[in-house]
């Protein structure tokens, strides 16, 4: 069983420290959620774990591999994919080209094509629009493309930065359901979400961040029992 662990991570932008030593762990096949108010450092923490942002202190580990020593383009080769906010598709590349970029880290071109063919069948809206520029897709389709692209490299962990942001309520449900399906294949999910109401039910474990520090960790049931946490961070949901 793989574990993705962050060990007292300190990071920020420029000289501004934003995350002040946060530790967390995500397990394969489970959904781990990070909640917290705007600007509390959730996305920053996620980027630091994925190597997209330098770590100032502490380290991220995937099992025995220290990710924080690796350049960002090597992290994907360790089996960890970050889906940035908004999905991060390339709008001026076609659907197929976006998917091929998802397999860029894999040397075997034929393997990539085979995986794309297998994947695209599960995403009918993409299969019909292979040559469409990603920028011409709807927000929901872009979210699906982003998810499918993340899967081409067959990652062990996917890090998602607010996958539900900007989606219609129906698309939020579909996206979260697809994410849940992935855990059944053994993929570990670590995601930052604002949409607590929808994300809480699918979470196996959750963390609450505020002002760059961890304020809570536990299972969704623990949160529901904690009136104070519910009132302060969950808006009484």
């Amino acid at each position: 069983m793989s574990t993705l662990a962050a060990d007292t991570i300190v990071t920020g932008y420029g000289k501004q420290e934003i995350v002040h030593g946060v530790s967390l762990a995500a397990e394969a096949g489970k959904i781990t959620c990070i909640f917290g108010p705007n600007g509390c450092g959730k996305s920053t923490l996620l980027k630091a774990i994925a190597g997209a942002l330098p770590v100032w202190g502490g380290a991220a580990r995937l099992d025995d591999t220290v990710l924080s020593n690796l350049p960002v383009h090597e992290v994907v080769r360790q089996g960890l994919v970050l889906m940035p906010q908004g999905g991060g598709v390339f709008p001026r590349l076609t659907v197929m080209e976006n998917l091929r970029m998802g397999g860029y880290a894999i040397a075997d071109k034929r393997l990539v094509e085979a995986r794309i063919e297998a994947l695209i069948e599960q995403y009918p809206s993409l299969a019909r629009r292979r040559r469409t520029l990603a920028g011409a897709l709807s927000g929901g389709e872009q979210a699906m493309l982003s998810l499918a692209r993340a899967l081409v490299s067959e990652p062990r962990f996917i890090l998602l930065d607010e996958p539900s942001a900007g989606l219609s309520p129906a698309m939020v449900l579909e996206t979260l359901e697809r994410i849940t399906t992935l855990t059944r294949q053994g993929i570990g999910i670590l995601m930052v979400e604002q949409n607590i109401r929808e994300a809480m039910p699918i979470a196996d474990r959750l963390y609450i961040l505020a002002a760059g520090e961890k304020r809570f960790e536990g299972s969704p049931a623990d949160v529901r029992d904690d009136r104070q946490i519910m009132d302060i961070y969950m808006g009484g949901a």
């Binding site: 994925a50 997209a52 960002v72 383009h73 090597e74 992290v75 994907v76 080769r77 994919v81 970050l82 940035p84 991060g88 390339f90 709008p91 001026r92 590349l93 080209e97 091929r100 970029m101 998802g102 860029y104 880290a105 490299s153």
Partner: peptide
């Protein structure tokens, strides 16, 4: 393809392994 992706968004291209 990697060059075109990088020209669009180098941060996302790096995440793909470029």
């Amino acid at each position: 393809l990697a060059i075109r992706a990088t020209a669009e968004n180098c941060h996302n291209a790096a995440l793909m392994g470029v």
